[in-house]
Amino acid sequence: MPGVDVITPKPITELRSWVETLSGQKVARCYQCGKCTAGCPVAYVMDPTPRQVMRALQLGLEDELLRSSTMWICFYCMTCAARCPREIDITKVMEALRLVSAQRKATPAQKDFKLFHNLFISNLNRFGRIYELGLGLTYNLLGKHPLSKAELIPGMLARGKLSFIPHRVKNTDRIRDIFNRIKAFEKQGKP
């Protein structure tokens, strides 16, 4: 139409279609009411907040999203999903963003989270069970965290709540097989 600015919608970005596939949620359904952010217990440390995440996905602001630590701060309490009037499972959107983010190099804001979760998974791969003391100590060591973060360890040891030896499953090969088969299957198609 002459004289009228036609706002052409952006093509659906790669990130958005990944998120929609992984989460099974339609980003366009969100009407920005903000109920998710209102109920989110950690929105106060999120940038962007859950509502803003939905908007950023609608607008295709990929870099802003993937630089942030929102999807790592989210702890899947599922309050947002339980309350969204559009029945969007925002928790699944957060999880999908984390899955995409996990494949990329950590930004400074994401560093500690990725370190922790990757250590957790390698601990699991190695022993089959989580070795709490080992995980805590390696995390603090590799993350160069001050020992003040380990202040509860003496009390835990005194109460016999931590052990110096990892609990291991008998058949660790079986776990390694699971990891290997997943790796083989996922070779293609990862974000």
């Binding site: 992984l22 702890f75 899947y76 979760h117 990757n118 998974i121 990891f179 299957f185």
Partner: peptide
Amino acid sequence: AASAHGIDRLL
């Protein structure tokens, strides 16, 4: 636990 589902869904 809280780690696998955000790193690798199949796991």
